[in-house]
Design a binder for these strands. Structure first.
Lengths: 125, 125
DNA sequence: ATATTGTGTATGTATGATATATACAGTATG
DNA sequence: CATACTGTATATATCATACATACACAATAT
């Protein structure tokens, strides 16, 4: 499982971990029931404190993506994937709306926003 | 000048102020040379500490949108509006890219993103 | 000229979020 | 049952956000 964190990003480390694991689950890289790396191992790999990975796993568990069992580990929980994807959709809506708001106050019309979106979609590997 | 702040938002108060004043400048509601409300008055109106409005004005000044003069007030600086708008454009690109990233990991195709963008554009008053 | 009232500024403090080290508790397995 | 692996809890450090209060400068009415 590939996770990359940046110390310079404004996003806190535990959030970066949450986001990336969440995506791994949603796109199927991490299947239902599969074990996540232990918080200790992950902490070591990322050169980060155990508390930070713990915090991330706590968040994932709260959101319903995983289950943690003392002594055994953390696992991708069986879940309603459609529901989770719907949540992600809401987040996309927020991002798009923010872009629209800025566009409106700086005089960028819809056409241009669409064009930007299309260009960026292709650029984004 | 209309500024609305929300205590519940995750965005800090001073950031909310910065964002809204920045937009007022960019869309021409606040013309070059025009005086902003004094930090004291604004603080009173928003039910907020002077330090918070001060912090916001500091940020605006650092970004080149305004100039503050002790004893006189804060004013919209003469500026390269195209340059500023270009900056805003970059921010839009970031938002769109974030939306795209989530879309790609959850299997939402470009068409659908474009559709969402168009719908949201019209909804957004 | 100076007292008053308006500006922005600086100092010191409180609280909450982020991240840490270290010690604790449960599970698996030789 | 000892050991080595899991996740968990406690106490602490640092930084960002927001605050109250006191300070410094400018404009202006006395």
């Amino acid at each position: 499982m590939r996770i990359i964190i940046s110390n310079q990003a404004k996003e806190p480390i535990y959030e970066q971990i949450v986001t990336q694991i969440r995506q791994h689950i949603l796109n199927g890289e991490l299947a239902e029931g599969e074990a996540l790396p232990s918080i200790r191992l992950l902490a070591k790999e990322l050169q980060v404190s155990v508390i930070t990975t713990k915090r991330a796993y706590e968040e994932l568990e709260k959101e319903g993506y995983t289950d943690s069992v003392v002594g055994k580990g953390s696992f991708v929980s069986s879940q309603n994937k459609d529901l989770l994807k719907e949540k992600q959709r809401k987040i996309i809506e927020v991002k798009l709306t923010e872009a629209i708001e800025i566009g409106k106050t700086t005089g960028i019309p819809l056409d241009e926003l669409v064009e930007m979106l299309q260009l960026l979609y292709e650029e984004d590997e």
